[in-house]
Write a protein that binds this DNA or RNA. Structure first.
Lengths: 214, 214
DNA sequence: GAGTAAATGTATACCAGGTGCAGAAATCCT
DNA sequence: AGGATTTCTGCACCTGGTATACATTTACTC
């Protein structure tokens, strides 16, 4: 269907990548707020106006790579094998992400990823953007649950927000530990146990969540 | 301890209120993004610099009233009667909020509140600010759970994010229905049932959440 | 009650993110 | 090759937010 991208298309892709790369390099070196979009444009040899034609806002220079993950949970639910519970499919997917050190699980300690994660977490406007993705993920997952699991609308929405919230909490916890210096391979066992615990909590509820019950 | 507020203090309060009132009136009339802070400052008969001395950012002109709610769930958990489960206290508090039409439950249909809610939901930067409050509420609740219920740290965090996510989903659902025109008194029964269902889901887990199980 | 220190307010100029516009340059299609 | 179309650019402009330097008001003290 797309046999020949065409020169125009190829050039667009290259410009897009050039701007993004220049931006991330500068941001990692000096900090997100310490670099102006004008500097990014200059480094990418492009006018400021063109930069904004490719990226609607400064934050998108960083987070555009993560946009795909917004619908990841929904895709997992939709493409699960027949007879599998949504939550089971999501757990397996998350555990696989941990094994593969998928950055979205917070368990990737490549220096580049780590610095990027740290920068995002340290920059309020980028954190806000991530929260936007989170909301999008909730919405997409709710739709997927409703359409593929015969779940009532409200229940689907409630399940979706719980699941997404838990996944993000797990990822943030992992990322925080790696940012603190713990190697991913060392953290893996704990991350696995935590994920199992978290998904069990989702399945069984908060009833027995106290260490000593009364 | 504060017998006499003092003239300076009183004047500050009045200025604060004057700016906030002018801002909200203008925002409701013309829309958040259609009104500049300079216009707000002029309407409040104050310089732009002074406005920013009272409110760190334009969004705060709207959301500063909601800042108290950030720690509400945590306070409920901390001040619950001995022997009560945190989730029980939170459910009772939420149901009470519904009965009293507390705006935070989304079930208040006073025209002023409704317009304000609609404006916030329609303005991305305000939604982002709300998400910030949500994160703060999660954090505060996690601490409260950990300190008062002898819950392990991770479990407390996971429970907190689930609870906050569910409460917000309920509130947003109610607000959306009222924004659509449904009167609060008419919605009350449904909101009550939904809340009971949601808290039961939190307690018992997502296991049986499908309408027809397989 | 006058005078002074501290706090608060103002005017002005400035920076950065983002947009509208008109025209130049590149690409595409025939 | 040449015209139509898309893309890029420079420029002016708006808005949110901040720094500086100065004026004004409040509070405290004698």
């Amino acid at each position: 269907m797309d046999g020949k991208p065409g020169l125009r298309e190829r050039k667009k892709r290259r410009t897009h990548a050039a701007i993004s790369d220049a931006a991330i390099a500068l941001f990692l070196e000096h900090g997100f707020n310490q670099v102006s979009v004008a500097q990014v444009a200059e480094a990418a040899e492009v006018s400021k106006r063109t930069l904004f034609a490719y990226f609607p806002a400064k934050e998108d220079l960083v987070v555009h790579r993560l946009a795909d993950h917004e619908t990841e949970a929904a895709r997992v639910v939709r493409s699960r094998p027949p007879g599998t519970a949504p939550l089971t499919a999501l757990r397996e997917h998350f555990l696989q992400g941990l094994r593969e050190r998928d950055p979205i699980t917070g368990l990737n300690d490549h220096p580049h990823i780590r610095s990027l994660t740290r920068m995002i977490l340290d920059t309020p406007s980028l954190v806000a953007r991530m929260a936007g993705f989170k909301a999008g993920a909730e919405h997409a997952l709710a739709e997927a649950l409703q359409e593929t699991a015969d779940t009532p609308e409200l229940t689907a929405r409630l399940a979706a927000v719980q699941i997404v919230a838990v996944q993000w909490a797990l990822a943030q916890d992992n990322a925080a530990r790696l940012a603190y210096g713990e190697p991913a391979d060392e953290r893996y066992a704990g991350a696995l146990a935590d994920a199992e615990h978290a998904f069990a909590l989702l399945e069984n509820g908060l009833r027995g969540s106290r260490r000593h019950d009364g």
